[in-house]
Design a protein around this nucleic acid. Structure first.
Lengths: 192, 192
DNA sequence: GGGGTATTTGACCTGGAGGTACAAAATACG
DNA sequence: CGTATTTTGTACCTCCAGGTCAAATACCCC
């Protein structure tokens, strides 16, 4: 019935995510968004209400894809400890290997927008909860298999790991190499 | 010989710090800076080369005053453990009590500018080092007095605490209340 | 192949960012 | 008291952010 759109919104949202992830919300211009996705601002604003609307889509995409991709590393074979450790070390390596030092988009958003943008704040908070839940699942599984003491407070440990990972991703922004960060991982795991 | 300036540069830098702290670098306009400090942009650009120049002064001021003020809490009476715990709990409370959720300016800067602004990145990194050193001093003191086991790796623990505090200040951006954060503090202290 | 609908393109608009220029004002010094 | 020197405030400038709109275009369906 109507002219079909040339692009897959999904693909555009992903491109937008890349840009926002790298430059932040305020640091990204509609101009650049258009260029990177290969469409004019007109089309852009026709599909997404506003820069902010697009940002929400992009952040949601991050939660549902990028973040999930990382947490999937927890499903690798090995003991609970190994998997928790493996995830954190892998993220350290990824963060340091990124020449742009993008870090975690949810954290970046929390820092930039928390308290001033409700929608963004909620999404970031959701990602924190999601990550904590993933840690909790691994810990509880470790307890069921007897690898980890049942007496441990699994929820408290999950929160600690969430917090640790969050810290790592911030320190990773300025870190020169991995030694300090890896040492942090090994030290925190001593509470288990 | 010449007309004297009406304002104390120190006071102006502090005002600038407040604004950058709250709204970030990109989110702050010269306009607002001028208004908040009560002088025209003319004077402003006459004294500080550029928005970026002023930002560097503001960030440096943060490191040398705000940050130092917080770390001074480590000097309160009590055991090493109590002082470490006390600092983290105090910061949690401060962060949650702030309606603007400004968090830590050095962390905010690392997130926003790391990898794209060398001067800012270095200053933020310096603050991380400074914080870690303060933790290390307390831990080593605890070891000297026999409160903490000499077998502990003091440097590793200091890094862990730096990382923990960093995480807390990020999670504090979206946290509704202190329970999760306080639990993190108590859990991490179990490695001692 | 023409109608109806939706998308695209590019021109256009307003406001404000970031900064400069310059004349007027205020001092210390001779 | 006049002058050199610096600060101040205002006006001004250019550029781009963020967004809107009209016309041209492409498709589906009959």
């Amino acid at each position: 019935m109507a002219r079909p759109r040339k692009f897959k919104p999904e693909a555009v949202v992903e491109k937008a995510m890349e840009v926002f992830w790298t430059k932040g919300y305020a640091g990204t211009t509609p101009q650049e968004l258009g260029e990177r996705m290969g469409l004019g601002r007109g089309s852009l604003y026709n599909t997404f209400d506003s820069k902010h609307g697009l940002f929400e889509h992009a952040l949601r995409h991050y939660l549902e894809h990028e973040s999930v991709k990382l947490l999937a590393l927890l499903k690798q074979p090995g003991s609970a400890r190994q998997r928790l450790r493996g995830l954190m070390l892998a993220i350290i390596r990824l963060d340091l290997a990124d020449p742009e030092r993008r870090g975690c988009m949810a954290i970046n958003t929390a820092i930039e927008l928390a308290g001033r943008d409700e929608a963004a704040t909620k999404l970031a908070a959701r990602m924190f909860d999601q990550t904590e839940a993933a840690f909790l699942a691994v810990i509880e599984e470790g307890q069921r298999t007897g690898e980890l003491a049942a007496s441990l407070d699994a929820e408290a440990l999950a929160s600690l790991l969430l917090n640790t990972l969050t810290g790592l991703r911030v320190l990773g922004k300025t870190a020169q190499d991995a030694t300090r960060l890896e040492r942090i991982v090994d030290t925190v795991l001593k509470v288990f």
